[in-house]
Amino acid sequence: MGMMESLAQLREEAEGKLKDVQSSEELEQLLVDVLGRNGSLTSILRAMGKLASEERASVGAFANKVKSSLEAVVAEKRAALGEIAKQRRFAEEALDVTAPGQLADPLGRLHPMTQTYRLIRDALVGMGFSMFDGPEIELDDNNFTLLNLPKDHPARDMQDTFYINENVVLRTHTSPCEIRALTTLTPPFRLLMPGRVFRVDEVDASHSPVFHQIEGFVVDKGLTLGDLKGILDSFVHAVFGEDVKTRLRPSYFPFTEPSAELDVSCSICGGKGCRVCKGTGWIEILGCGVTNPHEIANCGYDPKVWTGLAFGLGVDRMANLKFGINDIRLEYENDARFLRQF
């Protein structure tokens, strides 16, 4: 048999075997057997040296053709086998995607009050407010007297107070920080003063003897009630979104005049009226006003020159409103099932 015939036969046999190959191992073995160093094609090619040169050229060309066609068939087969193996893997490794995920170290949670406080703070800092801090246990003077609430002022009954002694109280609001700011800093300034406050309120769904406020306090020349409205609108929209409506209505506080309270449209019912907003469609979130001139004068400034704008908002209530929490007690029970939701 001539070399050409041997080559043709080899190709035929190899192609036949390739067709039957089932696995990549078989394929690789076949490759070694045919195209490997000691493979059948190789041994045929080795015998080429014995041929005459003109014959060698034509046999060589044919041998290369056989080799490349075999290689092409092998590549095709390899791809096909690879695809089969992948499909098998996909089938075997299919998972229940509805089964729960697993975390070695799950994250903790920030209390909803902290989250709300940060939202409010960030909105105010964006308007040029800086932070200021004051103590939770305060002088009666700072908490009341210098804020235009002298002893025996009837409005002292508005805020039932925990006393430490005649001159020291648990602060009933963050407003004493205003006195500390006026007596230690030099206006103009824009301050935000967060903190815990205390009132003699028996615990129920909407009252807690411990709660949180953020006091906003701006002192500058030429401030107006319109400016106060502008500040409040901006930050309410930052916290509750653009769709919420606000309503600034007259009220009374001894430390502001004119005084106002800010209502926002009830996020629970969308303003239609529900249990949370007592059917009014509005929820009060803060008290505010133009700083009472007595307070400015008590701290050594001329109220005709320096105007103050102040607001004190309840963080607890805003957190409840933001997240739809219907019972303030949940904020202080620290039940993990509650905290996990935020």
Partner: peptide, 13 residues
């Protein structure tokens, strides 16, 4: 509602 005028302030935490 108006925006406060006067000196600009750098808000700071």
């Amino acid at each position: 509602p108006t925006l406060m005028r006067g000196d600009t302030f750098r808000g700071r935490i």
